[in-house]
């Protein structure tokens, strides 16, 4: 069997762990990117929706791919998960760690890397704006958005389009999302 250490979720590029261990600047970067994308996207889309989508994807693959090892789920929530991409969890959990975390805080599947949720939890304490978002009940992943641009999906509102059954339960209980 191939070594789990070579799984896509185990990749960490140069300096990326150091950058993520400083989540506060990343919060500002997130806000800046969001503001920029919201302004630029509609203009670019008017010129060419196709090229815009491609450019956005390239931007995400390069920037988010380098820092966060982005798996291109197309519905980014990493500001709500301690500036740590939850799709780097081999089980693709969106609501916190599984019960298999090892006693050295390492992942059940990839013994060489730290559990991304342990990292997310620690980083969330250093955050200023979105640290409490860790308590949000995140909805199931919409797999139809895989490989699309999360930035474009954010502006178009596709990433918050949750199943009707999920939404009704959330509304009834007054919980977020």
């Amino acid at each position: 069997m191939p070594d789990p250490a070579y799984m896509a979720e185990a990749r960490r590029l140069l300096c990326s762990e150091w950058i993520k261990d400083h989540p506060r600047p990343l919060e500002y970067l997130y806000r800046l990117t969001k503001r920029g994308v919201v302004r630029v996207y509609p203009l670019m889309k008017r010129i060419s929706p196709r090229i815009t989508e491609r450019l956005m994807i390239w931007g995400e693959v390069i920037l988010k791919g380098w820092i966060f090892n982005c798996q291109m789920c197309g519905q980014c929530i990493l500001h709500s998960t301690g500036m740590t991409c939850p799709m780097n969890c081999p089980k693709k959990l969106r609501n916190g760690p599984c019960g298999g975390v090892r006693h050295d805080n390492h992942c059940e599947v990839i013994a060489e890397t730290l559990c991304v949720w342990v990292q997310a939890w620690e980083r969330s304490h250093d955050m200023r704006f979105y640290g409490d978002d860790m308590r949000i009940l995140q909805p199931p992943v919409n797999h139809a958005l895989q490989s699309m641009s999360a930035w474009a999906n954010m502006v178009e509102g596709r990433d918050t389009d949750v199943p009707a059954g999920w939404e009704s339960a959330a509304r009834a209980e007054g919980t977020d999302r």
Binding site: K92, L93, G96, P140, A164, G165
Partner: peptide, 26 residues
């Protein structure tokens, strides 16, 4: 590995089916 939902999605889905009488889709 499927992991289409996590355990919390599964709980909420089952709870929605029981209490609201709808599937996740509504």
């Amino acid at each position: 590995r499927v992991f289409d939902m996590d355990s919390i999605h599964l709980l909420r889905t089952a709870c929605t089916m029981r209490d609201r009488g709808v599937f996740l889709s509504g």
